[in-house]
Amino acid sequence: MTETVAHLTVDGAPADLAGMPDDERLLDTLRWRLGRKGTKEGCRTGDCGACTVLVDGRSTLACLTLTREVDGSDVTTIDGAARDAELSRVTRAFAEAGALQCGYCTPGFVVALAGLLKERGRAAPLEELLDGLQGNLCRCTGYAAIVRGVALAREEAP
């Protein structure tokens, strides 16, 4: 196994990683190397969205991303929600709408929606935002409360 190094900024803090296996996934780096476990592991095959993080502001599945591929990037996770305006906004909206039950899909939904709001703007049509969340699975809510949460995140005053 070859080892590699990477320098990331994670939720505002520098992370200088060394002696890391070449094929380490960003999800494992975040959760086990950096102890930032807010980001969840579901399928590890790109099918559930639970592991969604923002890499340089773009929604990214951490389970399909090798850490060395994002060397030099700025990574934002649910653990950094308090310091990011869109993440905070979505978090408030989800709390208000009760858009979670077990909460396991929640970090993925919150981060993915924050990414969409950053990319498309808060005025983006609801349908477009919902479309952008098709890759995130939730088994508990039946999505109804999530749809209400998305609507609130759009409309809620900044």
Binding site: T77, A81, A95, G103, Y104
Partner: peptide
């Protein structure tokens, strides 16, 4: 309101230990 559930905050902050 659903917001009265006391677990929402900890889960939304990613701090719930599963």
């Amino acid at each position: 309101s659903a917001a009265s559930r006391s677990d929402l905050g900890v889960k939304l902050a990613g701090r719930a230990e599963y």
